[in-house]
Amino acid sequence: MSTANDSWAIEVKGLSKSFGAKRVVDQLDLQVRRGEIFGFLGPNGSGKTTSIRMLCGLLTPDAGRGQCLGYDILSDSARIKREVGYMTQRFSFYEDLSIRENLEFVAAVYRMPRQRTVVDEALRELGLSDRQKQLAGSLSGGWKQRMALAACLLHRPKLLLLDEPTAGVDPSARRDFWAEIHRLAASGITVLVSTHYMDEAERCHRLAYLAYGKLLAQGSPTELVTTSGLSTWTVIGGDIDRLQHELLQLSASEQVVPFGNSLHVSSADGAELERQLQSYFERPDLRWTRDQVRLEDVFIHLMRGAADNYAEGAAR
């Protein structure tokens, strides 16, 4: 059984969820292509985990509908569970079971053929063959994360849902992790990964940005940058602290962010910003360059708009 459009791994419309009076996910529309790495971004508490849980049937949406791997998310969650690998934000394997016992449990629950071989292979790939008897609880953060990923992949899922997999993991382990994710995507697995690291956002094929439970933007990193309409300037020299203070006073400057000994100035209205910066351009002690808009600028821009809307909505 499959729906009309087979190219979407995930396609949901109007997904909403409230806890008590609080609307945690509000009218979420999401489309994820098969085989792509889809980044799910948003500050803490923006509803990423809640959305992912609704996708794999762990939470029932209050409203909305959609499909995941061609199965209805409302009525077919049992099937979804068998073809999805979900890696929870918090390590949720059994800490009082050894690495091997955890993997064996997963293999048995999915009723895999040749379980012993499957587990042996997974352990070898993980590089944990000689530590397989160690209790999972005694592993470091990075190793726990790798073990969890291996366990989620054991039953050869078609879709991976990774909830902040790299939180609290050191940079080199993060790099290895992303290399692995790209390898998986290349082999045809769809990956939806939530994060709040900007450098990770850049590594995704497409992104969705969530704040206060609302989807603010969706698209490839370049699409997001272009549609944001932002312009950014970088300036070096002078008294950076004072300059930042002054530039913030300008009505057109939206963000004035220091980076090392330079300042990053960006605005949604590029022409007006240039006009207001004219006097600064002429100062001999400052060196101005037109810069590329970065995803971070886009997200902060989006957040501001959302915060204003949210405040208005609350005030009304």
Binding site: L58, S92, F93, E95, V109
Partner: peptide
């Protein structure tokens, strides 16, 4: 309370 329920529920038991 240990958070393992989320994983258990995500599996087809």
């Amino acid at each position: 309370e240990r958070g393992t329920m989320e994983n258990l529920l995500a599996m087809p038991v």
